[in-house]
Computed example of a mutant assay.
Amino acid sequence: MRNPYMVLGVPRSATGEEIKAAFRRKAKASHPDRNHDNPDAAARFNAINSAYEIIGNSEKRRLFDNGHIDAQGRPLTRKSVFSGFTGMNSWAGFNFKRAKPQGFEETGSTTTEEKPETREQESHEEIMERIFGESFVRSKAEDAPGLDEHPEPDKADLDLHAEIEVSLEEVLSASCQDAELPDGRIVKVNVPAAVEDGRVLRLHGKGVQASDGQCGDAVITIRYKAHKYLRTDGADLITDLAVPLKGGILGAKLPVDGLDGRFLVKVPSWSGSDRVLRVRGKGLPNGGKGRGDLYVHVRLMLPDAKDDDLTAFAKSSL
């Protein structure tokens, strides 16, 4: 588990509100529902939540900062700074009895001295704590190598994620768009022509800069804006065409609005509302294979005003 401060992209001095704000930004940008084409999104989202569980909680944050728990909230075993020194093994047999003056004779009287057997069972750490104080050993242990294990951040943790929306008309040609990053910066994104919905563009070096000098990227996901009358199906487009009842029976040529402007389509005679007309090459760019098609769904419409002749005809046909 990586350092939760690096996962959320905040310094150790960050306030609780700053940590909460960073968590919300990163969780929103990395949520799997918004990153269907990114297989790493779920793992990153889980890492962001785990990091916030540690430093988003004041008590757990205090324990983590003091080295009492690791990045997963597990207790850390306090090590002695004197462990590993082979020369210290000779202390095990050391006799802590004070030297008695020559001619001194023991009596049966009680003494305030601890029994030698008790002292001989003390560990190296307990001995040094008793001599120098517990705070000395703790402070030295926390400074010892391997105890404050905060590995260098993974470069992916330094990335900043954002989304930009492009209109279907803009997909036909290259454009330059503004993207707002989670840290509030605005970056320019050159969106290529024929860009696909969900495509990820990477701006190198525009992410978070770590203390060791490495810098993440700005990862921008492209989303199509909802169109007022066109729907997408891959590279194909779908639209509805209102056809008067007379045109559906006798046939008609009616205008249709597409990405390239308005054009006429021929509605064959006797076309019901289940009829779909295909107009080739009027869809979206299809990955270097030209363009998709436009599918026009016929929707028969009754006249706005009541038509007595149509009413009579309907009654006569029953």
Rank of each mutant, 00 (worst) to 15 (best):
R34L: 14
I19T: 06
A29P: 04
A22T: 04
N35Y: 03
D37L: 11
K20G: 10
A71P: 00
V10E: 02
S13N: 14
N57R: 05
D33M: 12
S30R: 15
D40N: 12
I54N: 06
I55F: 01
N46I: 05
R25T: 09
S80W: 01
P11C: 00
F23V: 00
F82W: 06
K79P: 08
T77D: 08
P75R: 07
D37A: 10
R61M: 04
S80V: 09
V10H: 04
D65I: 09
S58D: 12
P32V: 11
H68C: 12
R78S: 11
S30T: 14
N35I: 05
F45I: 04
F64R: 00
N66Y: 11
F85A: 05
E59H: 11
F45M: 06
K26N: 03
K20A: 14
D33A: 14
V81W: 06
R25V: 09
H31I: 10
G9H: 01
I54D: 03
I48C: 01
S58R: 15
R44D: 04
F23E: 00
S80N: 08
R12Q: 14
P32N: 08
A29C: 05
I54P: 03
H36L: 13
E53C: 11
N38H: 12
N38E: 15
L76R: 10
L8C: 01
A29R: 02
K79L: 15
L76G: 03
K28P: 02
P75Q: 05
A43W: 06
A47T: 07
N46C: 04
R61G: 03
R74H: 06
R62M: 12
A21F: 01
Y5W: 10
R12N: 13
G67N: 01
Y52G: 01
E18G: 05
N49T: 10
F45Y: 15
I55A: 02
D33E: 15
M6D: 14
A21R: 09
K79D: 09
D33T: 09
G9E: 03
V7S: 00
K20H: 13
K28D: 10
A41L: 06
N57V: 05
R44M: 09
S50A: 15
I19D: 03
F85E: 08
N66F: 14
S30L: 14
R78T: 15
P11W: 02
Y52H: 13
P75W: 02
R74A: 10
G16N: 14
E53Q: 11
F45G: 00
A14G: 01
N66D: 14
A14I: 00
S13T: 13
A27S: 12
M6S: 14
A41D: 02
P39E: 06
S80G: 12
K20M: 11
A21E: 08
A14F: 01
S30G: 11
A51G: 03
D40R: 13
G9M: 00
K60H: 08
N35W: 02
P11G: 05
N49W: 12
P39K: 07
G84S: 11
D37T: 12
S58V: 07
H68F: 15
D70Y: 05
K79T: 15
K20Q: 13
V10C: 02
R24K: 10
E53W: 09
D65C: 08
L76I: 15
G73V: 00
I19Q: 06
D33N: 15
I54A: 09
V7C: 04
V10P: 03
Q72P: 04
G84Y: 08
D65G: 09
I54G: 05
